[in-house]
Nucleic acid binder design. Structure first.
Lengths: 190, 190
DNA sequence: CATTATGGTATCGTCTCGATACCATAACCT
DNA sequence: AGGTTATGGTATCGAGACGATACCATAATG
């Protein structure tokens, strides 16, 4: 019953968000997808900052992403550095310019203003509802959750401020656990 | 406080929705924007089914939209017919094939499934919250609301099942009032 | 009428995106 | 070990999106 209404609003909000992102990005000569890449790199951990990580997050093909990254590197918004152990991997980092750009335009001021018009109850309900919707939607589209590390089933607390990942068998700092990870599997899921 | 969380989820949901639309559309040789055009034409009233209506709804330029419409017409998903009174206007209609396509893929099955996982309370809260967010966001982006005719300040009830538009000075049927309109202004707004 | 506004099309350049092919490195085999 | 397969990444190509600009036809306005 409510499905169509929710879909209408979600779809419309997506369109408007995209238009808004395009207009903001145009001022800096950036496409929407390029901004999304920068944004992802600002949120992901050191195991996920590779071209394949970006590829999975955005649901594109690796060839497409490779081209986008080349442009961003040429514009000096990111740097590419080979992994020390696995020579196939490249790690992507935001430059100072990249970080500065993001903090200028993300989230879009018009979105912040729109959020500010919500009451606390509305805001909490909206956040919860959209989270649930997103998780289910990702699931039925066979896409990864890219959740925060500390909400992952592989995350184990060791002692004071020290954690580890039981999937990668690597120690984690507290900061590590505050970022999103491409290997993330929500606690309680198979 | 909650702004960033809401933004994260909204942005992510938008991305996944776009990817999902792209994948479904690829099966029919359609781009996301083409599907959005078809969807708009299935929702809008007879005063809004023109290239300019599509242009305003999608927030693009009229040249871009003109090209997209040409492709859709060549693929026989829409027809173009000149207006009887104003020879500048073209009215766009979905063909049988266009309607059939839309009913096959909209809303995406995976989205329906995700919505079905929400409780009634969650669903109602989500619908209300996202509506409010969308309206404010449209406002701060100087975009039109494209709301349902019967929620418009220009809509006046005459008698049994008969309505009129005080902006266009035209009589409306009940069916007319159930569609979205490019002239829509929400009741209570200036 | 002349001027301006509006709706629409055509053309061009930049860019996205998927598809395909290809290369380098790593993991997995008996 | 040596061959096979899997994985991460790049290069190239064609279809199409998109904005910008220019242009045309019709309508509205003075």
């Amino acid at each position: 019953m409510k499905t169509n209404q929710i879909y209408d609003y979600t779809e419309r909000l997506s369109e408007v968000l995209r238009v808004s992102t395009r207009r903001v990005g145009a001022k800096y000569g950036l496409q929407p997808v390029q901004i999304q890449v920068l944004r992802y790199l600002s949120l992901c951990n050191r195991f996920s900052d590779t071209p394949m990580g970006v590829t999975e997050y955005l649901g594109l093909t690796k060839g497409t992403v490779s081209q986008t990254l080349k442009v961003l590197e040429k514009k000096s918004y990111i740097t590419k550095r080979a992994d020390a152990l696995d020579k196939r991997l490249a790690h992507l980092k935001l430059t100072r310019a990249g970080k500065g750009l993001l903090s200028d335009i993300m989230p879009p001021p018009s979105f912040k203003a729109a959020c500010a018009s919500l009451s606390d109850e509305q805001s909490a309900a909206l956040g919860g509802g959209i989270e649930q919707l997103l998780l289910r939607f990702l699931q039925t589209n066979s896409m990864k959750t890219f959740g925060l590390c500390y909400t992952c089933r592989y995350n184990k607390k060791q002692d004071m401020g020290n954690y580890s990942c039981t999937l990668l068998n690597i120690d984690l700092s507290l900061d590590d656990t505050q970022l999103i990870c491409r290997e993330h599997v929500l606690i309680g899921k198979s």
